[in-house]
Amino acid sequence: MKTLIEQVYGRIQPQEGTVALERVLLECYLSPGISTKALAIKCCLPVPLTAAVKREFIQAGALAQDRGVRCTPRGEAWVERHWGYRGLDKSLYHQLVAEGAADWKREVQSILVELADCYAARPQANVQLDQAKCTPETSLKRAVLCLRERAFIGKKILCVGDDDLVSVSAGFLLKRLFPGSDHRATEIEVVDIDPRFLNYIEELAAAYQLPIRCRLWDLREPLPGDMLNGYDCFFTDPPYTLQGMSLFLSRGLSALRNESGLPIFLSFAHKPPGFTLAMQRAFVNMGLTVCANYPHFNVYEGAESIANRSQMFVLRTTDQSAPEVMDSFKDEMYTGEVNRTLRTYQCKRCMTQVKVGERGETATIELLKNKGCPKCGCSTFELIRKVKQGPSSPSES
């Protein structure tokens, strides 16, 4: 039996995908009496398309035109039962998602107090894994951003690496949004290579009854089958190398549902123009669009090399999205590894080989991808060999 969203999508099939339809219905639930124009602005859709979607939901019995657009009892029941909005503190919700809500911290001050205690006892950062501790405020701000992107309540959320404890902040935010309610519609899962953080997150989840599950996994290997194609969004703050970013994005992308418009929350250091160009080329190669960029969004403790700040990208999937890394990952990805290896890459088109590293033909893979293959200009390469560089002569790794 088709769901309400599937029924409407089958009749108009917008290029924006079912995510756009979900957002229209949700905005009518959260802001009853909203005008069609305001609804189009909220959903970032053309007015004609918004009007067409509205008509289909009216025909399906989920919306009604009554001094603006609002949900019928059937529409309200759908949102509350299938998406888990029953029991929501709507006043707090609107305060948190309001455009330009600079005082959001005041509304969740009690959460920040609890998080401060949790964060004080978290494991030490392992710099060999490029870990850096973000502040409790930053972690909670990420969860609030997810809420503002309508990718939070009732969704299946994945944290691809979570030494920042975003999963814990998200769990606390859920409890605050649903006071006195047994909210079970939102699921949060963490995949990480560091058992110390996974154990600590599990301890907090048990102590505070947070809907979090943890999975110990080395992201150099493809995700297990039960984690593929089932999530609605993911967070990641990967190693600040092009290889690390591409790997973490690829693994997260493989976990998302095959749907256009799903958000990805990528935290990454501010980089020079050449590196940024290579990053954006990687986004395009994976069929991702940049929906938003927030400079200096993240604040860290003791990350002096990046001035204690990094940016937040909000990416979205398209009908052409696909991971760049599908199989086991053989390249170096952590900053310390990348800086001390001489790597040989082979052009995927003409098989020309290029050495990359301090003693190579080009210093970084970012520069190589920006310039393209010296023979054919192709910008896609495969790692075929790597040699560790010692203080005098390199040795095979």
Rank of each mutant, 00 (worst) to 15 (best):
C378I: 02
T276H: 04
T289I: 08
S169T: 04
L88W: 10
G302W: 06
P272G: 01
E361F: 01
K141R: 14
A116P: 05
K156M: 12
T317C: 05
C378A: 15
L25Y: 09
S393T: 14
E22P: 09
S395T: 13
K371A: 15
S397N: 06
Q353K: 15
V79P: 05
A269M: 12
S321L: 06
S169N: 08
R74Q: 13
M245H: 02
K133W: 15
V19W: 02
T364H: 00
R213S: 14
W83Y: 14
L253W: 05
V108A: 05
L115G: 07
Q59C: 07
P295L: 02
C134E: 14
N285Y: 13
C159I: 03
C159R: 07
I365C: 05
T335H: 10
A102W: 14
V387N: 08
A101C: 14
S305K: 11
P211Q: 04
I384E: 01
Q346G: 07
Q243E: 15
T344R: 10
P211C: 00
L174A: 00
L39N: 04
A20L: 11
V356C: 04
P123A: 00
I5L: 15
E187C: 07
L92W: 06
N258T: 08
Q311W: 03
P391T: 07
M227P: 06
I41G: 05
A40N: 04
P238H: 03
Q7L: 14
R81F: 13
L277F: 10
K54P: 01
M333I: 09
G287P: 02
L249V: 08
K375C: 10
Q280L: 11
M245D: 05
R150N: 15
P136Y: 01
E304T: 08
R215E: 03
M351Y: 15
Y200C: 07
Q280N: 09
L210Y: 00
P391I: 03
C159P: 10
L204I: 11
H94F: 10
Q389F: 01
T50Y: 00
F152L: 11
E16L: 08
V24P: 05
F265E: 00
V160T: 01
E187W: 00
T3C: 05
Y93T: 00
L204T: 05
V191K: 03
R150P: 01
L198S: 03
D66H: 13
V299D: 10
T3F: 12
W217E: 06
M1A: 08
G68M: 12
V24G: 07
Q209L: 10
V314D: 02
Q353Y: 09
A64V: 13
S110W: 07
V299R: 15
K37S: 13
Y200A: 09
E76Y: 09
R184F: 10
V144E: 00
E16G: 01
A98Y: 09
V387I: 12
C159E: 13
E382P: 04
D194R: 02
T344Q: 11
G360L: 08
T3S: 15
T276C: 09
G244C: 05
E301Y: 14
